[in-house]
Nucleic acid binder design. Sequence first.
DNA 1: CTGCATGCAAACCTTTTGCAAGACT
DNA 2: AGTCTTGCAAAAGGTTTGCATGCAG
Lengths: 146, 146
Amino acid sequence: MDRISSSLIEELQSRGMRVTPQRAIIFEAIEKLEGHITAEEIFEQVQKVNPYVSLATVYRTLELLLELNLINQTNFGRSQAYFALKDHGPHHHLVCSECGYIEEFADTIFEPIRTELDKQYGFQAQTDHLSIFGLCRGCREKGAGG
Amino acid sequence: MDRISSSLIEELQSRGMRVTPQRAIIFEAIEKLEGHITAEEIFEQVQKVNPYVSLATVYRTLELLLELNLINQTNFGRSQAYFALKDHGPHHHLVCSECGYIEEFADTIFEPIRTELDKQYGFQAQTDHLSIFGLCRGCREKGAGG
DNA sequence: CTGCATGCAAACCTTTTGCAAGACT
DNA sequence: AGTCTTGCAAAAGGTTTGCATGCAG
């Protein structure tokens, strides 16, 4: 089996978890697809590399990665779950309801909100992955949703 | 059949939609339960009034209300959908990841964010129903999630 | 009366799980 | 060598749908 370079693999190894070929393939798929992807999308990508990896294993591996806090899970208001690597700092998403376009924005913009929620409600917001729906620039210019 | 007072019924009538007994019962249930409720919860409440109403009808009615923009749908990061009447102004939710407690907060707190997103990304945020996860006061005091 | 709404049950979609066989450390 | 992981297929949970019947307007 080829040597596969993957930060996820290293993470797993350093935490003493087993690195199976399936996991390696799944990690590669996640890293290759980069962004917010469904289990199904990961599965499809994995299938291209090795069609004998099962969807159940994809789910089980995603579960593992969630436990290890290496990925996060969102659903953008849709029925399936979306997964993404936690490789960059806390950020959020603007999801265009019109065209589905997804853009990231930094967490810093939420500072005032966090402060305010704490002050007003004693609530400690874990705003590490929020989705805000609305209209992107493009769709606004096209006059959508007006 | 009794006359049932319901603003949803009136809305439906005024839009020329059929008002069936099932719909009336479902509307009452939604109005009675008030807040964020699942289809299942509505169904249970409906069953108390008339056990012959089917779950499918509950779903179909919810779909109708969504189309008519009389309710909104969220899922609070869980697998089922939650529905709520759109009868009070835009608001959002603080969802405690620890105990599941849900608290509302006014939309006004989002003003700065909206402005900022518009300025920075040209994004018109439709923040009419956002869920922010975190720890509620109670769970923080109990030292949860530390 | 006509067309829309309903109930039932089956289909659907995504995700989870039991179990025996197999692979990683 | 032992334990963890896998594949398969079935189950599970939530939601949707086809079809014949029934009811609102």
